[in-house]
Amino acid sequence: MDFSSPIPLQAFLILAALLFCIGVWGLINSRNAVRVLMSIELMLNAVNLNLMAFSNYVDGQLIRGQVFAIFVITVAAAEAAVGLAILLSLYRNRETVDMERFNLLRW
């Protein structure tokens, strides 16, 4: 491996893509509702990593990617709070966290 050149942009992009795909897989396949929320956080982090990489490599002077990343972090915090509150009230009403049994509105 070449240790002399700086890290290319594509390395960060591939890392973020891998993190996003792991998050999508976990989102589809989790039975526990808390793990679904964790997978959503993984996907948001992947998007943030992309924004930061572009901000550093392409937009080095006006770092607009970092500003957007901060907004994404804010929205993610709000989403985590509301999501966990919904999860708690759901658990209180159905006494389970199994995603397969949250099917009241399905058919």
């Binding site: 808390v34 956080e41 708690l88």
Partner: peptide, 19 residues
């Protein structure tokens, strides 16, 4: 935000619903 708030919130939620 993430380690200090979101992760702690998730841990609390796990403790509340960990049946």
């Amino acid at each position: 935000v993430y380690v200090g708030a979101v992760n702690v919130l998730i841990l609390f939620a796990i403790m509340l619903v960990n049946k």
